[in-house]
């Protein structure tokens, strides 16, 4: 099912996001950086317009903001420098910096733990569980399930004796 819009970060935006994966995600999952950033894009694609615009603008500012101190754009920072630069946003020059760092932390963490290999690594395997319990419901409780399906459609008028045809006919006669 693809029932939602595509949102793609700009080439630079994607580079910034990729450079933030080692800062935000656990080291053992940095190998999934591409998938994490793709998940990030998918999440942004359905976010409120303001957030989408904010993320694009925020990435540009974040990228260039590193120049004065590191003489490099943020997406080229690695290791300690990348960590220190992100931390300076986290602890905030302004509340907007803090908010943006917080949002990046949230969205990349979300993207990280949505990667199937990461879910598997921490022991979260919902698909087989869903399959198992669905089967149980449709076998063990089949009769009750069917009963409820019938009940949902069974006539049960809110006003017994009410017949809309009578109302329509009366209306025509009375008109």
């Amino acid at each position: 099912m693809s029932d939602f819009p595509d949102f793609k970060l700009s080439a630079t935006g994607r580079k910034v996001a990729l450079s933030l994966v080692p800062v935000i995600c656990p080291p053992e999952y940095v190998q999934f950086a591409d998938a994490i950033v793709t998940n990030f894009e998918l999440t942004i694609s359905v976010s409120p317009l303001l957030l989408r615009k904010g993320v694009s603008a925020g990435f540009a500012t974040y990228d260039l903001g590193a120049l004065p101190r590191y003489r490099k754009r943020a997406h080229k920072l690695t290791g300690e420098d990348a960590e220190r630069y992100f931390s300076s946003w986290e602890h905030g020059i302004t509340p907007l910096h803090v908010q943006f760092a917080r949002a990046l932390n949230q969205l990349l963490s979300l993207g990280c733990y949505d990667v199937p290999e990461v879910m598997e690594a921490i022991g979260y395997r919902p698909a087989p569980w869903i399959e198992e319990v669905t089967r149980k419901r449709l076998t063990v409780y089949a009769a009750d399930v069917r009963k409820q399906e019938v009940q949902i459609l069974a006539p049960d008028p809110l006003r017994p004796g009410f017949r809309i045809e009578d109302v329509r006919r009366d209306r025509k006669v009375g008109a």
Partner: peptide, 24 residues
């Protein structure tokens, strides 16, 4: 699900990993 919990935690990096390893 883990992604939603990870998102709500302020931790990051190795700290986030150590916490989320305890998801179960």
């Amino acid at each position: 699900p883990p992604s939603v919990i990870a998102m709500s935690l302020p931790h990051r990096g190795a700290q986030l990993g150590a916490l989320m390893d305890q998801y179960n």
